[in-house]
Each structure stands twice: as C-alpha cells, then as structure tokens.
Amino acid sequence: MVGIVIISHSRTLAEGVAEVARAMGVGKAVVEPAGGDSEGGLGTSIDLVEDAVARADGGDGVLLLADIGSSVLTAKMLIEDAEGERILLADAPLVEGAVAAASMAATGADLPAVHAAAESAREHRKT
C-alpha cells in the first residue's frame, strides 16, 4: 500500500490531519505525521520527515503532502536526495489532499493514482 506523509510546521496540525486522513482511509491507509522542527517548535525538520517516510514506506511508494514554505521546500529537497526511490509530492491543499490520498490509498491503488487523487482535491470547491 502507498504510504502518506503529512508535513506541517506544527506537530499538532500534522497529527490532526493524519488522524482525519486515517479515518477517511477506513483504518487501512498508512498516514504518518512529520510536524514541527527538530526542537519541538514550529518549523520543519528534514530528519523528522525522513523518519516519517521510512515509517510510511511499505514498498509501494510514499506520497508527501506539505503545508507551506519550508515544508514544501523540504519535501522537494528530500525527493531530490532520494534518487530512484518512489516518493512524490502532491500539489494539493493539505487536509483535502490528505483525505483524498488516504481514501485512494486504502483501495490498494498505486502511487500515480494516489498522487492524482490528492491533486484532484484542488477541484472540490466549497461554495
């Protein structure tokens, strides 16, 4: 199954998004949070993100969702470093993208399908 990693500046935000996404992934989807900096404050830690990717990776690839700024840059940098490994970043809103990705991942879909599901979340308008 494709794993999902939620990268946020805030540890509690990453955990909360992961909680919602896991529920929408009917308990099957693997969603790992990577929130905050290396000292427990607001920010991004590439080491925490790498740990979360390792936990989420079941062999079918990992999809990253990131909130803003350094979360996005860290995700892109990690992908560049992980040459050849199957890791993608979704260009998607964090909560909606995570819910869409977890729903699709729970069906056993492959990484491109989970990535596409996450990015399709952009089109779900609220008004």
């Binding site: 404050g41 920010g43 860290t74």
Partner: peptide, 15 residues
C-alpha cells in the same frame, strides 16, 4: 544547515 535551520532558508541555503 538543512538539518538545523528550521525555516525555508534551511533547504535554500543548504541546496
């Protein structure tokens, strides 16, 4: 720098 900076400048200066 990438490991310890915490903000967007970490990935940018690190790169």
């Amino acid at each position: 720098i990438v490991s310890k900076t915490g903000g967007a400048s970490g990935p940018l200066y690190g790169t």
